[in-house]
Amino acid sequence: TEIRININGVTIHVRDASEELKKLIEHLLRLGADEKEIREVLHRWEK
């Protein structure tokens, strides 16, 4: 699944996002995570 996240005008594009990762990101956004925090989570997730 491919997702695009727009945070304050900055688009983060994620290829091959699992449903689990998608739910995690949606949850973090609801909690008010910023772009830097989302990128950090994505970076750690890929490892």
Rank of each mutant, 00 (worst) to 15 (best):
V14H: 03
R4T: 13
H13L: 13
L29T: 05
R15M: 13
R15T: 14
H27E: 13
D16V: 06
N8E: 07
L42W: 02
A33M: 03
K47A: 15
R44A: 15
R30G: 09
L28Q: 05
E37V: 13
S18R: 04
R4F: 14
K23V: 11
T1C: 15
G9C: 02
E46F: 15
R30I: 12
L28W: 04
L21C: 03
R30D: 12
N6L: 11
L21Y: 02
K23Y: 12
E2F: 06
I38D: 00
R4S: 13
A17E: 04
H27A: 12
T1H: 15
I3Y: 14
I5E: 02
H13F: 12
R44I: 11
E2P: 08
T1G: 09
H27Q: 11
R4C: 12
E2A: 08
N8T: 04
I3H: 06
R4E: 13
V10R: 02
T1Y: 14
I38F: 06
I38S: 00
A17G: 09
V41W: 08
L31I: 14
I25L: 14
V14L: 07
E19I: 11
E26P: 00
D16P: 08
R15Y: 12
T1W: 14
I7H: 03
I25T: 01
E20W: 08
I3A: 01
K22T: 12
N6V: 13
I38T: 01
E40H: 05
V41L: 10
L42Y: 02
L21F: 05
E2C: 10
L29G: 03
R44M: 08
L24R: 08
S18I: 05
L28K: 08
R4D: 09
T1F: 13
E37P: 01
E35L: 08
R4I: 14
E37A: 10
I25C: 02
L42R: 00
A33K: 06
E37T: 14
K36I: 09
A33R: 07
E26D: 12
I38C: 02
E19C: 14
L21I: 06
D16G: 10
E26C: 03
V41E: 12
D34S: 10
L31D: 12
L31W: 11
K22G: 06
K36S: 12
H27G: 11
K47D: 15
I5N: 01
H27K: 12
K23D: 12
T1M: 11
H27L: 12
S18M: 04
R4V: 15
E19L: 12
K36V: 10
V41R: 03
I5A: 01
A17H: 05
R15Q: 14
W45Q: 01
D34A: 07
R39T: 06
L24A: 10
R44T: 13
L42A: 02
E35V: 09
A33W: 06
R4W: 14
L42S: 00
S18P: 15
I12W: 02
V41S: 07
K23L: 14
E37Q: 08
K47I: 15
E40Q: 05
D16Q: 12
T1D: 10
N8Y: 03
T1A: 09
E40Y: 07
G9A: 04
W45H: 04
G9R: 02
E40G: 04
H27S: 13
H13W: 09
D16H: 13
E26Y: 14
E40K: 06
